[in-house]
Design a protein around this nucleic acid. Structure first.
Lengths: 164, 164
DNA sequence: TAATACTTTCAATAATTATTGAAAGATTTA
DNA sequence: TAAATCTTTCAATAATTATTGAAAGTATTA
């Protein structure tokens, strides 16, 4: 089964978005392919559709599973694994935000916190910068925690309220 | 003038953050260096401190200026250009958010919008996905617009309210 | 105008990151 | 247990991205 033109363009667009955000293009293309597919796909389906090697497909599927964006699906009577992506954009956003917080934001909060403590205060402006950054990254973390744990409607309502 | 250990670590940390978010490591290092410097620095200062070539320094300083994160400063009596970064973390975040919206989010909103219109509806689930994505990216855009145009206190108050 | 001080550009090179494909490892079926 | 089917790993290679440094370009001073 070949994808329609619209799906191809979607895969293309999602792939570019990913790569400009520091995520491997193939990984985001596979994600887009799975999101736009009505049924779960096998590694071979993915290889054929995106014209990529087995190793590449395998590796990026694993990453997507690590990110919690893709799940294995066993299909009765089939021996090989099939893969499926969640299609709820809210959940997808939540998952990505949560992973990026863990992988990229937390380490920085950590480092800034440590620096702030050991800084010698010889440059007050720099101490202030560290202080501000610590506050900022901490606040950002708690916003993301809230997002992570909120249910869709709650957060959306709050958001609407925020902008009215 | 050499940076203190804490500043060096800060530059390191900020550089890693940048590169994991798809921003050139040197660019974010220069940004960190300028943020942590009490006085404006020349291209040569930056080259010396970060041990990079003139071309590299020049190019990444230009990018930072394009991003609105760094400004030229003319110093009386000096012939060469000096550079200075804003130190208000709130402004920095706003600037980065605003640029990323323009550079990465807007093109996607655009593509999704176009796809949504030309999609042939042969796969209702995919049409729905496009619809949802369009809503989501549009909402995200308006949140960022609001952030872009808000003043610090207003947004912060709203944020606190959101989490109490 | 010529020399000087500085900035920008860009082709060459280096470093990093992604991809391949074949071999090794698992797991299932006969 | 052996063959078949599928998955994972990984060293080699390709593609991409970053960096260099010297040459060209610009502006300032004498």
């Amino acid at each position: 089964m070949k994808s329609s033109e619209a799906k191809k363009e979607f895969i293309q667009a999602w792939g570019s978005l990913g790569s400009s955000w520091g995520i491997n293009r193939t990984m985001s293309s596979i994600h887009a392919l799975l999101m736009s597919s009505a049924k779960p796909l096998s590694t071979e389906d993915i290889m054929a559709e995106l014209q990529i090697s087995r190793g590449n497909a395998n590796m990026n599927i694993r990453s997507l599973i690590d990110w919690g964006l893709v799940k294995k699906r066993f299909i009765p009577g089939e021996r090989k694994e099939f893969f499926e992506a969640g299609k709820d954009i809210w959940e997808i956003a939540r998952q990505i935000a949560s992973e990026r917080k863990k992988r990229e934001l937390s380490p920085v909060v950590q480092v800034i916190g440590e620096l702030k403590d050991k800084e010698d205060k010889s440059d007050p402006a720099f101490s202030q910068l560290l202080e501000d950054m610590h506050d900022f990254t901490t606040t950002l973390t708690s916003v993301m925690d809230k997002f992570e744990n909120s249910d869709r409607n709650w957060f959306f309502k709050k958001l609407v309220k925020l902008f009215t």
